[in-house]
Structures are given as structure tokens and as C-alpha cells.
Design a protein around this nucleic acid. Sequence first.
DNA 1: GTCAAGTTTTTTGTATACAAGATATCCAAA
DNA 2: TTTGGATATCTTGTATACAAAAAACTTGAC
Lengths: 218, 218
Amino acid sequence: MANRHADTIADELEDMILDGRFANNDRLDEVQLAQRFSVSRTPIREALQRLTQAGLVEQIPRRGAFVRQPGAIELIEMFEVMAELEAASARFAAMRMTDAALGDLNDANEKCMKAMQDQDADSYYRENERFHHIIYAQSGNSFLEAEAKRLHRRLKPFRRLQLRLRGRLRQSMSEHESILEALANGDPEMAAQVTRQHVAVQGEKFHHLIATLKIAAE
Amino acid sequence: MANRHADTIADELEDMILDGRFANNDRLDEVQLAQRFSVSRTPIREALQRLTQAGLVEQIPRRGAFVRQPGAIELIEMFEVMAELEAASARFAAMRMTDAALGDLNDANEKCMKAMQDQDADSYYRENERFHHIIYAQSGNSFLEAEAKRLHRRLKPFRRLQLRLRGRLRQSMSEHESILEALANGDPEMAAQVTRQHVAVQGEKFHHLIATLKIAAE
DNA sequence: GTCAAGTTTTTTGTATACAAGATATCCAAA
DNA sequence: TTTGGATATCTTGTATACAAAAAACTTGAC
């Protein structure tokens, strides 16, 4: 990609923002960050530019850079788009997927299941991510794969939240089964539909969660 | 957004690349560009960073920035994704669209038709773009709208190419009619399907065009 | 004439310097 | 006490300086 220093700084800042280590609208002071990373302002500014492009930071001219956590509405919109990208991936994958990849997908799903039974959250997240990434890759469309990965990563912290809802995990696994079945049958429309539903419901659950939190806060 | 100078420079460079004023793999020399724009290297570097993020430029560490025109395969992939984004927009629009917007869409379509009869290419492109942008906006999903606009813009120069094919324009207009009808009927699945087809066929026509050009070149 | 090692020249990436705009502080008047 | 304006301070945005890496060139051996 680009220059090493600014690159790694951007990655670190991205992680920090996505992990929620900054509050919304926190100002990212250039000199402070420069000191923290022991570099000059130049690579910091490059990193901030990158984050701005990625939508994680908003830069206001002559005012500075502010972390920009998406609001509830924007998150729902993003989940909606994610559902469409996943549905499209699944549709293509149903037609283009290799047998070997189908085996991998099955493997990821079984490990997901096992992780759920073992209450092993880390393992669950890892295998669930693998499950979805395999579908993106098997769309046979690298551009789609890249876009899907990008948005998937952006939504990661919020997916975790939503999975805490009672019964959601088990339901999610059953949806995986339907996806697997549709892909195994090579049924593009079915694959697209169940996959869209699988992701869209995450957005809805998330919405529900937000609403609940709001009520609880009153 | 960000700083004025680097901003406008990025926009200008973007236009130049999208208009094809640079060949693929052309190196974008920082000092040369700095002189051309009468600024220092700093804002140039910021602009190049932005273009890299947008996928128009590839930066190789310690080597420089190179314009990166998508190849045939990548273009087909991008058209495939565009088709999905448009289809999703149309699906949502079928459910959420206002009557006023439906009127606007009809208006854009009629002006498109008129432009075709008048052989007025500029007017055609403008109204065609308006047609599609209305659908994005009426998806009621700003995030989707932004993503669709972004990709639409990226594909702009290649859509123009494809429209030169004999009979393509008339076919395209008839597809617009089907889209309008589905939206007017509030039929989400039909709207998604005809819209996907409308855009996907552009990719196929484009593919066909490329193949033809290659044969002609031999 | 070709190739390879060593040297010079470019070019990138980072640090620092400086200018202009934004924010904060202070003081006086109502 | 509060408000308004003038001044001081801080912060961003751009220019310049410098170090290190890559490319280009030179020179010498075969």
C-alpha cells in the first residue's frame, strides 16, 4: 500500500475507534497523537485523511478531526446495505462456488456450532467471520468481495452487541443451515433470500436493542 | 470536508483520471503536480492519498503513485455490483417512494426520450443520470444512496462507451419504462429484477464491446 | 558490445518552520 | 454580573528542509 508509518498509525487508530476506545465527537488532536506515536504531525495527518475517507472520522476545515460513530439510523442503513451485498454474494456463489469451498463453509459452520455449545465467544466470532468471508470470496467477484469485507469490518463491533440478545445465537445458526442448503442446491434465488434475511434481521435486532437501551435509560 | 486546496486538487485529478486524460500506469510525479498546481508537495500528497482510497490510484511504498484504470475483468465485476446496488435501491424505492418523486422520475425519463430523438447526447446523459439518482435517493437509505452514487460515478466513462452500440439506446429506454412501471405499481421484486437486468446488461454489452475491440486489434 | 559493481541523482517519507484562521482570555462598559 | 470587543494563544494548513531508499548513470572487466 503506502508508507509504513502513516499506514500502521492509521490501522491502530482505526482499531481504537472501532473498538470504541473513543467517544463520539471526540477531537483527535494532531500534536497529541503525534506525541503519543512519537512521530511528527505529517504521518498523523495522513492517517486522519485515510480514516476520514473510511467514514470513521469527520474533518472540519480549520477545526480539526472528530471521531464519527454512526448513529442508530445510519447503522440500520448500513445493515440494510450489508444484507444486499451478502445476498448478492450468495446468489453468485450459488452458481459459481466450488465443492471444496462448500466443504470449507460446512466446516466453518460446524465449528461455529461447537463454539456455541462450548460458550466460546472468541471462537464463535472467528468461525462466523470465516463463514461469511467464504461466501464473499466464492461470489467469484473480487470487487464485491472487497466491498463486502469493508462493510463487514465496519459493522463488526455492532454485530457483537446484537448477538447478546436471548436466543439470537441459536436462530443465527439455523439461518446458516438454510444458507448452506441453498448453496449446496445451487439455488441462487433461495440463497440470496435467506442470506438477505439473515443479515437484515441483525439490523432489526440491533434496532430493537437500541430502542430497549433508550427506554432503560429514561 | 477537509482543507480547501488539497480538496480541489483531488477533485481535479479525479476528473482528469476519470476522463481518461491519464493512461493506465502513468506515474503521478509529486513535484511535477506541485508545480502544475502551484503548491507544495504537501497538498499534492494529501490529494494522492484520497485518490488511492477511492481506488483511482495505486501507491507503491517508496516508488510513487500510479493511475490505476480498472481492467476488463474488474469493470465487469464493478458493473455486477452496480447492478446489485441499483436493484436494492429500486426494491426499497418501490416501497418507500413518494408520488412527487415518481413524477420526477417520469419527467427524467421523458426528457431522456426526447434527448434520444433529438440526438442530444449531453442532455441524454444528464437526464439518464438524474433518473438513476432519483431511484438511489428514493431508496430512503442515505448510506445506500452514497455508495451507489460513488460507484455510478466511477463507472461513468465506461457507460458512455457501451451506449454507442447499435440499438442499445433504444433498448435502454424500454428498460427504463419497465422500471417505472414496477415502481409505480409498488412491486419491489419486479423493480429489483428489471433494474438489475438493466444495469447488468450494460456490463455484458461492455464486455462484448471489449471483445470486439480486441478482435479488431488483431 | 554486454554485464556488473559502485556512484550519483531522483524521489519518497518524515520533520520542522511558518502563516492564517479559530478559540480562549481579558478587560471595560452597561 | 453580563456582554462586547480587543488581544493573546492555539491549531490547522502549507511550505520547506532533510534523511533514506530507489532509479539512473558511470566505469571497468570480460
